[in-house]
Design a protein around this nucleic acid. Structure first.
Lengths: 215, 215
DNA sequence: TTCTATAATGACCATGTGGTCATTACCATT
DNA sequence: AATGGTAATGACCACATGGTCATTATAGAA
């Protein structure tokens, strides 16, 4: 952990309250604009305490960040395990649904992720982007490769192009679910469960069959 | 124009220098973190002058923004005109290439666009997002519709799903061209002209045929 | 009850911000 | 050369930030 000993000695509930407040602040203001003054005001504790617990603003963010990474890793591992036996498109479908569920459960974490991708002044950004890279390398690549091997995907597929294709689509699909203006009229934004699952299926079909008429 | 009279009376070259500096600053720091102090230091003029020219920081940004919108509109109109006769996938191909060219010519403007999409504290953001919406409504929608009518696209396509699909892919394709970590190993990042055109063609084929094996 | 180690506190600091405005510099007209 | 109107200037303001640290409160041991 990046936090000081003093923080660990706090009773669990207070620890959680402090972390939750920090997640909130970073999620709605990014790193630079996040204000420790606001946090302590909301928490009702002294500013000095925060610096005693975390050293610096960056230290506080590191703790929040590590927590988030652990959450994502756990979720990813689980999805990979659950879907191991299914065919390519079914795995894709389940991965998307798992992504949506993650956002439902941890919307703030997802907001921080979005901020980190497009805001340049985050600490740990280089390390973070590397982690994101691993997602395509370790998750999508084998998915495509085995899809081709099993004959579910076209044999003439360029693997790296396909991975890019999927990465782009999945990413945007999740974004559209929680950022209104990105859904481009698809009706995905904050769609209820049933509707959402229909869109996912429709979407996966589009990836399978493409848009062309075919003759 | 959002600027004051005093600014218009400046000699053209100085006007351009000031605007260019502002574009630079907003492109690399977003709105909030952009510093008028830095701008005047770089320009070698007094801080007061900037406020005489533009009233507020927001006023300055408005001028930059309007300029950018005009650029985009012009480009879009041109592409639409040039490709009117071609079939769907050829239009798609040319649109992507035009997008790349725009980024090559106006990288700073494109950076501001990206910042505005994912940073919440921009002025004019609501208006801006509406403008972006018009892109899918006025550009992609008719493209898909006529593609279906001419039999180039599958007749059973859900139009709004297809538009979302294209919006997501084109957007990310352009991003991958100028943000290294988004290219997911596709080799598109800052690719030279020839390579880039090959990727575009490959990409369009993927949209046409999909990834499925098809039996 | 007294002592002691540790945690909580908030006034304080240097720095940077957007924005103001009295003063100065400039230049065209008389 | 004197005048008058306009544009450039930068010291200055109120405010907010991350971070510090001497002081105080607290709780457990003696």
């Amino acid at each position: 952990m990046g936090c000081r000993e003093t923080f660990k000695k706090l009773e669990g509930e207070k620890q959680q309250r402090i972390l939750a407040t920090a997640v909130d602040e970073f999620a709605s203001h990014g790193f630079r604009q996040a204000s420790i003054n606001r946090m302590v005001q909301h928490l009702g504790i002294a500013k000095g305490s925060m610096f005693q617990y975390f050293g610096t603003k960056e230290g506080l963010f590191k703790v929040v960040f590590d927590h988030a990474v652990e959450l994502v890793r756990h979720t990813l591992r689980q999805v990979k395990q659950t879907t191991a036996e299914s065919d390519f498109f079914e795995r894709l479908r389940q991965s998307l649904i798992a992504g949506i569920h993650f956002i439902d459960r941890h919307p703030k974490i997802y907001r921080i992720y979005l901020k980190m991708v497009f805001q340049e002044d985050f600490p740990l950004r280089a390390e973070f982007l590397q982690q994101v890279h691993l997602f395509s390398a370790e998750y999508l690549n084998p998915l495509v490769t085995s899809g081709i091997a099993r004959g579910t995907l076209r044999a003439d597929l360029d693997i790296s192009a396909a991975v890019f294709f999927l990465d782009a689509l999945m990413d945007r699909f999740l974004q559209a679910y929680c950022i209104s203006f990105l859904d481009a009229g698809s009706g995905l934004y904050q769609a209820p469960r049933e509707e959402m699952e229909r869109r996912v299926a429709e979407f996966v079909e589009l990836i399978r069959k493409g848009m062309g008429a075919g003759e």
